[in-house]
Amino acid sequence: MKAFNMLKIAVLSLLFFLIPLNASINKYVLSDDVVIDPRTAQKIFEIGSEVKNKTNVNLYVYVKTDLGIDKNIPIKEKMQLIKKEETELTSMLVKPYAVLTIAVEQMHVNLLMSEKLKSIINKDDILDGYVVPLLASKDKNTLFTKISAAVLNGYSEMADDVAHANGIEKLESGIPSSGKTAGTIWKVFMYTLVILGVFLYTFAVLRSKKKK
């Protein structure tokens, strides 16, 4: 019975870490809309805090499941509404800033930044090389798992760009071997944790039934 209780505690502890982190307690996650994995949110907070302390640059992520835009409206009108949303978002940010945005239902990804950072952060390289490939990858992982991986991958690269521009060779909170494979490594790590949680739960249930 003691061993069974310990297994239940282990499973519950693991599930706790799978519960999405409340964005209100993470100032660098402006809105994760229950999309970003809590481990990803925590890592973003660590990286964002270090970048802010060392360079005074604010790096954010803004991820929404749905912007509430009608799917049937013309593309031009949809883009105008998305642009309006982005303008309202950036108007509230303190310069210098950069914010990685994703709208799942609208299939929209963007990287917005204040003028000072436009010559420091390579928008096209980050989106095309570090974010979009993970979102579009053909594998068994869920879309939300891919979003967490893509967000962390892109955010880490943004942080590295800002750090290097300020003479910082390596961030203490950065991802080891940061680059186009970093997000994939993190994605595999998260997927493994989920599988482990399911295994522990199944083992606990079977053990309980056997004792009965």
Rank of each mutant, 00 (worst) to 15 (best):
I147S: 05
A41I: 07
I147A: 03
I47F: 01
L81P: 02
K146H: 03
A10D: 08
K83T: 05
F17I: 07
R39H: 05
I185C: 04
K27G: 10
L89I: 02
V57D: 07
S24W: 09
I102Q: 04
K116I: 13
V63T: 03
V194W: 04
I44K: 05
E157M: 15
L206G: 10
K170S: 11
T181Y: 01
F189G: 04
M107K: 15
V61M: 09
K43C: 01
K95V: 04
Q106A: 13
N26H: 10
G68A: 06
G129C: 09
Y130L: 02
S178C: 07
I147D: 07
L89K: 05
P74S: 10
S13Q: 14
I25A: 08
V188F: 00
K78N: 11
L93R: 08
V198K: 06
F144R: 10
R207L: 14
V51C: 09
D37A: 06
L30S: 01
R39D: 04
I9W: 11
L18M: 15
L12T: 05
D32N: 15
T87Y: 10
F199D: 07
S173T: 15
L117W: 12
E46F: 15
T145I: 01
V198G: 02
F17A: 02
F144C: 00
R39T: 00
E169I: 13
K116H: 11
Q42F: 13
H164R: 13
G174A: 12
T55F: 11
A41V: 10
L171S: 02
L89Y: 08
Y97V: 13
E115F: 12
I175Q: 02
I147L: 05
K43Y: 07
G167I: 11
E105C: 09
E46M: 15
L21N: 03
V109E: 14
